[in-house]
């Protein structure tokens, strides 16, 4: 028997958006976060392309144009040695962004496995050893810890990044451990265990993907703080050493010329502010996207 044709359209199941698309849709709703991401992208591009985009070599001194105000051939003016401030700010972005990303990378590389193992196994090592060490590290104000470490390790960008990375590690351990403690009692962990999965497999294949969101959020916000910390160390003379261009150290030298060449102090500070603000906006957006529970 032939089935009569109907005029109703064929029913097709509604396609659920894929996970990345769903996340993107959530992120896109936060206009400030999108703006932050866009500004950050421009800053990263400017830093990466500095050798091609910067109008001058940031180290070249030209005593014929010392302390020139912004305008003409030097959009951001020149410093006391006739170096182009715009070029130094663009090159400074490279070290500042690298310092932010690498120092937080160090903190995550050290803190993530410790927090994961600590929260997963708990017991003596977790509660008595690791948590008390993180308590102790967190009791020392972050900048004082970073300063003390930078003092004993000596000045330099690499050492500043290590010092800042160590300073951020306890916070990463705490966030990861807290997330793992919440996840380890979930049914999927019990199910994986029942299926014969070993501890390492459960930790890295099952638990880790479920805690990665809050870790990314924490890392992005920590990157903003790390950039300020690196600029602070450079300002004090413990980060990148002159004549290499860095936002913090440029501000230190600018302080001696505030009355006659204030532009030397404007631009590096504005660069730090815009970078940190864009990362904070992006971090807020990532939090709303990846971990809506954390939203206040």
């Amino acid at each position: 028997m032939a089935v009569p044709a109907t005029s109703a359209p064929p029913i097709t199941p509604a396609r659920a958006p894929s996970v990345p698309r769903d996340l993107w849709l959530r992120f896109r709703k936060n206009k400030l976060a999108v703006a932050g991401a866009a500004v950050l992208a421009v800053l990263v591009l400017a830093a990466v392309l500095a050798p091609w985009l910067a109008p001058y070599n940031p180290l070249t001194q030209d005593y014929a144009v010392t302390l020139q105000p912004p305008g003409g051939g030097h959009w951001f003016g020149t410093d006391e040695l006739g170096r182009d401030v715009l070029s130094r700010v663009m090159y400074g972005a490279r070290s500042s962004l690298a310092a932010g990303v690498i120092s937080v990378g160090i903190a995550v590389a050290v803190g993530l496995p410790i927090g994961l193992i600590s929260g997963f196994y708990r017991g003596f090592w977790d509660e008595v050893v690791i948590m008390r060490i993180t308590d102790a590290l967190q009791a020392v104000p972050f900048l004082i810890l970073a300063l003390a470490l930078a003092a004993v390790l000596g000045p330099g960008l690499g050492k500043a990044m290590i010092a800042i990375g160590i300073g951020f590690t306890p916070a990463v351990i705490r966030v990861v451990r807290g997330q793992v403690l919440a996840q380890r009692e979930q049914d999927y962990v019990q199910a994986a265990r029942a299926l014969g999965a070993g501890d390492l497999r459960i930790m890295f294949r099952h638990v880790l993907p479920n805690i990665v969101g809050p870790v990314i959020v924490q890392a992005s916000l920590a990157t903003a703080s790390a950039i300020i910390a690196e600029a602070s160390l450079s300002y004090l003379g413990l980060g990148i050493q002159p004549p290499a261009p860095a936002w913090g150290s440029t501000l230190r030298f600018a302080q001696g010329y505030l009355t006659i060449a204030p532009w030397m102090a404007y631009w590096p500070g504005i660069a730090i502010f815009v970078t940190v603000m864009s990362i904070n906006l992006l971090g807020d957006g990532l939090r709303d996207m990846l971990d809506p529970k954390m939203k206040s």
Partner: peptide, 25 residues
Amino acid sequence: SVLALAGQSIPSFWLGIMLMMLFAL
């Protein structure tokens, strides 16, 4: 909210230098 985020993003040493420039110098 934007002002609060800006306040968190501004490096205190730069703000200090700017305030010094305006109110003192």
